[in-house]
Amino acid sequence: MAKKILLIEDDLAIMDVYQIAFKGAGFKVETLSDGQSTMDKVKDIQSGKENAPDLILLDIILPDINGIDILKEIEKDEKTKDIPLIVLSNNTDVELKRMGYDLGNQKCLTKSQYTPTQLVEILKKELK
């Protein structure tokens, strides 16, 4: 059965690129482009209204809500905290990375440094 990826990305070109690459690699992809709808989605998963994805790809800089706040929300609930999560950003700010590490997230990737093909390989490793 195809693994389900929840992709949160506000740049439509990047979202399109990732969607094509992930679907091409056999993943099922669900996309969200802002913080509020992501927060709602996380809460729906936590309340059992929706099924959890197999992996979350979270862009840390979103137009309305900071990705760190979404990370905190994910980490605080048993139903969401064990979902594999990769933080994606084009911001290499060290403090953001450190906050990500402190919240238990071990993967903080700079988008510009990985091609979609490389990202697919990373996803496959994470989902093994």
Partner: peptide, 9 residues
Amino acid sequence: TGMSGYLDL
């Protein structure tokens, strides 16, 4: 990132 992503695809 978008440009290099499309090129990779």
